[in-house]
């Protein structure tokens, strides 16, 4: 196991660097295990009070339980919650039947883009991890996006030691990835150690559980008997199944994830 203390120390260091370097950062929260863990790490880094807004992208297709979980944590932790929605696309009825690529781009990426423009955020803190997906394994801790939101993955910054590149020209923003180096197992070990709240959908019922949470139409369960945090940790020690196996948008076509991310997807 990676040392949880080392992981936590590094993440706190990155969060404090981001807070010192950017004028107006915000953190993205899907209500899933990774971003909820990261919110907890924000609380630890800033001694209890998260000093920047927390954005939740609402596609209108999220599970009902995710909204309930979101609202109760937001209240309990006193979050400055900003809900990002692409109202226009939602009105037009954009949905997964339009193609997953199209749907994710409109309801998530575009919604986020609007939210950024309206609020003038210059840094977005995200809970992506290298071990989730090959394309995320290529990321930097501080990753610049241009004014069209694009990720120029062919020319990423030099990022040596902990010298993150934080220069952003006008109208651009930087993605900050403080838990990039964590594995799925580490997140659960940490949830166990810190007793942080998790959405009950991760726990097995009738032999099924969600391993990764997204929008309802595009997220499926895995076969599992793990109904407690301990059992999830045990399951992850031996499993050969990929974490995002239940996430449809990754699998639509080869390199869909790369194309989504190049346009500004998380």
């Amino acid at each position: 196991m990676l040392d949880l203390k080392d992981l936590e120390n590094q993440t706190i260091y990155i969060l404090r660097e981001a807070y010192a370097e950017f004028k107006r950062p915000a953190v993205l929260w899907s209500t899933g295990k990774d971003s909820t863990t990261m919110l907890w790490l924000c609380k630890k880094a800033f001694f209890g009070k998260i000093p920047f807004p927390v954005i939740h992208i609402d596609t209108g297709y999220k599970f009902k339980q995710m909204y309930g979980f979101r609202d109760s944590i937001a209240r309990e932790w006193g979050l400055d919650l900003v809900i990002a929605k692409n109202q226009e696309a939602m009105k037009e009825g954009v949905g997964p039947r339009d193609g997953k690529f199209e749907c994710c781009t409109k309801l998530k990426t575009e919604a986020l883009k609007k939210c950024l423009e309206e609020n003038g955020f210059d840094a977005l803190i995200l809970a992506i991890r290298r071990d989730e997906h090959g394309i995320r394994a290529k990321e930097r801790y501080f990753s610049p996006r241009d004014e069209d939101f694009k990720w120029n993955y062919k020319d990423q910054p030099l990022e040596m030691w902990d010298q993150y590149q934080s220069i952003t020209e006008d109208k651009t923003h930087t993605r900050v990835h403080p838990i990039l180096h964590w594995r799925e197992l580490d997140v659960w070990e940490y949830v166990k150690q810190e007793k942080t709240p998790v959405n009950p959908m991760y726990f097995a019922r009738n032999g099924k559980r969600y391993r990764s949470l997204g929008c309802e139409p595009c997220t499926s369960t895995i076969d599992s008997e793990a109904s407690t945090i301990d059992e999830i940790v045990e399951e992850l020690r031996v499993t050969r199944i990929a974490e995002r196996s239940g996430r449809a948008q990754d699998k639509e076509k080869a390199f869909t994830m790369q194309k989504l991310r190049a346009l500004g997807y998380m």
């Binding site: 990676l2 071990d131 394994a137 290529k138 993955y153 080869a254």
Partner: peptide, 21 residues
């Protein structure tokens, strides 16, 4: 398993660094 960019596959060379455990 490592080269996840389509360009990496097409060009048969690694473009950017990858971390795995």
């Amino acid at each position: 398993f490592l080269d996840s960019f389509d360009d990496e596959l097409k060009e048969e060379r690694t473009i950017d660094t990858t971390g795995v455990m």
